[in-house]
Nucleic acid binder design. Structure first.
Length: 566
RNA sequence: UGUCCCGUGGUGUAAUUGGCAACACGUCUGAUUCUGGAUCAGAAAAGUCUAGGUUCGAGCCCUAGCGGGACAACCA
């Protein structure tokens, strides 16, 4: 019954899928689907871009189309090749490919220039000699129409000559621009004779000094879509008001039934972080974080270093969906996505973050043995491993209390716990130093309770992780917390998000102890430190000097109970 | 005193296009467990921003409000 219901239940589609399917059914563009992902190479990609990437490439995949990678490199003053390579690496890492279709808006500078000439010849573009401030003033306001530029009536010949001369380097930057002649009274500010070409002498990272004039975004994007045969140009909501202009240029360009259309969706916002490239750049420049790939950054390289997998990011994007509602998504959903992924895949290991020495007084002095531990209880195929056990061990400081509260299931004087995979031990006594800090715990073990042994089924409340003191490896562990203490740090007018920085966003722990099997782990290897969370080997890690990043903690209901009782 | 976009449990989304408001996360129970994790079973939680209208029937269509956002870069 339930199964048939599931089958009958039509899979729900978001509004972009619905639009695309409608276009297909109406036979638009011959039923062809072609999208593009168009980053500007002026910074690193962040998880907001991942949302766009999943859509652009995802729609192409789903509807048997193609997705181009196109660098929107129309502003040489802000762009650099450094970013081109990083962007490509991140897209590939996420699991998408543009095959051989790697394009640049700068590839179209010639065609764009020719198109501008066509517009001039049709009387639809003119050279304006006024300064930026004057043009801006004449634009009017959102409630008042603009005034016409005194240069608006120039002859076609004069416009043509001036535009060519602009590109020959005869005029200073800022002295002249080319504008489309549309409507200075339009309620849409973008239609009030938008600037389409400006003079720039900064060399371009790909075209060098070939060009002295560069097209503006609005004069490059739709046209590039058109040149590439893009059918669905998906972008974020803030470009909604640009759409009439996009369409206006396409109208001038069209010479067949083919036409690209722009569809806008909501940008990704995450709680407790900032997402704009500018603000992220400030964090890097100010040294608030260690770089673009700092594990606290929402950049893809940062998330990668933190231990996030491409699968978890794609899953998160799938969970939040695409709408036109401006929402702020909870980071805890992103954390859910990585936990869900790692739970199935990450090998379980023992790591002790804040070690406390335990001595098993009735265990033979020099003896050592190996116990067998399951690598992943969620997946038998991961097998088992042998972990050394001995008389002296380390457990977590948190796992012992001299005066335990009610319902504390761990070690305390007279209380019993299981050391996972090994024996049940009872705390008999402990030692304190002159500061009153507990330095050593003395336990006895019950040899019959070894896992798999005669008394193994004896029930105790708690199970602890541990490492053997003589065998374990030292490690540094970096714990991360949210970068900001405010849910929406950039959502307050006139307040700099940096006012809300979390001073405790990074905690570096040294002298942590991990089991010996971790000795040859390499960068980005991922593990579950049992009872603690998911951890990932950092790029800084070296044999003999291991460094781990905590990706995310395990859900900790004990911590919650504790907090509530406080 | 403009134009455009958007208002559905705490959060994010869905509702077969006008037919009993569903799913996920989170929360709370209980079972189970050699991870206080995971897993399994169950529960609470919105009557769809407001007021009208059309209709047998409105989250969906219409009107008017209210609230939020985008737009006046030689940025993208």
């Amino acid at each position: 019954m339930k199964e048939s219901e599931d089958i009958l239940k039509t899979e729900s589609q978001h509004f972009i899928e619905q639009t695309i399917e409608k276009d297909i059914s109406e036979g638009k563009n011959g039923g062809r689907i072609h999208t593009r992902f168009p980053p500007e190479p002026n910074g690193y990609l962040h998880i907001g871009h991942a949302k766009a990437i999943c859509l652009d490439f995802g729609m192409a995949q789903k509807y048997g189309g193609m997705c181009n990678l196109r660098f929107d490199d129309t502003n040489p003053t802000k762009e650099d090749v450094e970013y081109v390579d990083a962007i490509k690496e991140d897209i590939n890492w996420l699991g998408f490919t543009w095959e051989e279709r790697e394009y640049y808006a700068s590839d179209y500078f010639g065609r764009l220039f020719d198109f501008a000439v066509v517009l001039i010849k049709r009387g639809l573009a003119y050279v304006d000699d006024q300064r930026a401030e004057t043009i801006s003033e004449q634009k009017g306001t959102t409630t008042q129409p603009g005034v016409l530029s005194p240069y608006r009536g120039r002859s076609i010949e004069e416009n043509l000559t001036l535009f060519y001369r602009m590109n020959e380097g005869e005029f200073a930057e800022g002295s002249r621009v080319l504008r489309a002649k549309i409507d200075m009274a339009s309620p849409n500010m973008h239609m009030r004779d938008p600037i389409i070409y400006r003079i720039l002498y900064t060399p371009h990272h790909r075209t060098g000094t070939t060009w002295k004039v560069y097209p503006m975004y609005d004069f490059a994007h739709g046209q590039s879509d058109y040149f590439e045969g893009i059918t669905h140009s998906l972008c974020t909501l803030e470009f909604e008001v640009h759409r009439p202009l996009y369409d206006w240029f396409v109208d001038q360009l069209m010479d067949s039934d083919y036409r690209p259309r722009q569809i806008e969706f909501n940008r990704l916002n995450l709680t407790y972080t900032v997402m704009s490239k500018r603000k992220l750049l400030e964090l890097v420049k100010d040294g608030v974080v260690r770089g673009w790939d700092d594990p606290r950054m929402p950049t893809l390289c940062g998330l990668r270093r933190r231990g996030y997998t491409p699968e978890s990011i794609r899953r998160f994007v799938e969970l939040i969906g695409y709408t036109k509602v401006e929402a702020i998504n909870d980071v805890s959903l992103l954390e859910y996505a990585i936990r869900e992924d790692m739970n199935k895949r990450a090998p379980r290991v023992f790591g002790v973050l804040n070690p406390l020495k335990v001595i098993i007084t009735n265990y033979p002095e020099e003896a050592t043995e190996e116990v067998e531990l399951v690598n992943n209880p969620e997946d038998e195929t991961h097998g088992t491993r042998m972990v050394p056990f001995g008389r002296e061990l380390y457990i977590e400081q948190e796992d012992f209390m001299e005066n335990p509260p009610h319902k504390f299931f761990r070690l305390a004087p007279g209380q019993e716990v299981r050391l996972k995979g090994a024996y049940i031990v009872r705390c008999e006594s402990f030692k304190k130093n002159e500061n009153g800090e507990i330095t050593e715990i003395y336990c006895t073990y019950d040899p019959e309770t070894r896992s798999g042994g005669a008394q193994a089924d004896r029930k105790v409340k708690g199970t602890l992780h541990w490492v053997s003191a003589v065998h374990c490896l030292d490690a540094e562990v970096r714990l991360y917390d949210r970068l900001f203490i405010d849910e929406d740090p950039s959502g307050h007018k006139d307040i700099d998000p940096r006012e809300y920085l979390n001073p405790g966003s990074l905690t570096v722990l040294t002298g942590c102890k991990v089991e010996p099997s971790l000795g040859n782990a390499s960068a980005l290897d991922k593990f579950q430190f049992q009872r603690l969370g998911y951890f990932c080997v950092d790029y800084d890690s070296r044999p003999g000097r291991l460094v781990f990043n905590r990706t995310v903690s395990l859900k900790d209901t004990w911590a919650k109970v504790n907090k509530e009782e406080k």
